[in-house]
């Protein structure tokens, strides 16, 4: 059942504190949804819960992806099912080159899906083609993952991982943070190049400017653990002028 991501009345705690207080959201294949909101509204929590990061307690509701309950799956099973998270703060893995990391990850996913592993030569060509699209130098493929990368390089590298793993749903967790305008454009072009009728995106951002480049089909405003408004791309532009002041919590 290829109906994309369906979240129903999702409640999530961190410790004793309720962070998400009943989120409902559907992202159909091929669509780009943006989630905006002030700091501390629960945007990153939503991204983490969908991808299965430990440390969150789901106290109610459901998350399904193409008809399957993802909350029951391990993070690596979700990855193999086509869920991808671009990290806000990509971590370093010393000694493991970008190339080795991506080849290991892609083949682990292919294996989990019952597909044949890609042979090293074919993979290398595939990887170089993807890197070229994102204007990443070949030299970066030989460097250990994220070690000594600038902020912009790390984010572009996240986009490279997305391009290689070809997910069905990509969640971008504040990928625009810390990027200058040129890097922002490159990242946005990377995303736009991968838009397709089968692939959907959940773009989490604090600022509207990323959405000048990645034009969303739907914009949600998340505040204090709830979706308080949903609209089209115009909603994002309006927020740019008014800010989040209208969404102060009900007393």
């Amino acid at each position: 059942m290829a109906n994309g991501l369906v979240i129903k009345d999702l409640h999530v705690n961190v410790g004793e504190r309720e962070i998400l207080k009943g989120i409902s959201l559907s992202v159909e294949p091929g669509k780009v949804h943006a989630i905006m909101g002030p700091n501390g509204s629960g945007k990153s929590t939503l991204a983490h819960v969908i991808s299965g990061r430990p440390g969150y307690e789901v106290t109610g509701g459901s998350v399904e992806f193409n008809g399957v309950d993802v909350l029951e799956m391990e993070p690596e099973e979700r990855a193999a099912a086509g869920l991808f998270l671009a990290f806000q703060y990509p971590v370093e893995i010393p000694g493991v080159t970008n190339t080795v990391f991506l080849k290991t990850a892609l083949n682990a996913q292919r294996k989990a899906r019952g597909e044949a592993e890609m042979d090293p030569m074919a993979f290398l060509k595939f990887l170089r083609d993807k890197a070229k699209l994102l204007q990443l130098r070949d030299e970066m493929l030989k460097r250990p993952l994220n070690v000594g990368f600038s902020g912009g390089e790390k984010k572009r590298n996240e986009m490279l991982q997305m391009a290689v793993l070809e997910p069905k749903l990509a969640i971008l967790d504040e990928t625009d943070s810390g990027l200058d305008i040129d890097a922002l454009r490159i990242v946005a072009e990377g995303v736009n190049a991968q838009r397709s009728p089968e692939r959907s995106f959940l773009v989490i951002t604090h600022y509207q400017r990323l959405l000048d480049y990645i034009v969303p089909d739907v914009v949600h405003v998340l505040a204090h653990g709830r979706i308080v408004e949903t609209g089209d791309a115009d909603l994002a532009r309006r927020l740019e002028k008014t800010g989040y002041a209208d969404y102060t919590p009900a007393a």
Binding site: F87, V96, A112
Partner: peptide
């Protein structure tokens, strides 16, 4: 990070330690 990209915990540890 490794698990999100598709590696099991054992594969992740093997990869990180080999690095």
């Amino acid at each position: 990070l490794c698990r999100q990209r598709g590696l099991s915990p054992e594969e992740a540890v093997a990869l990180i330690v080999n690095g």
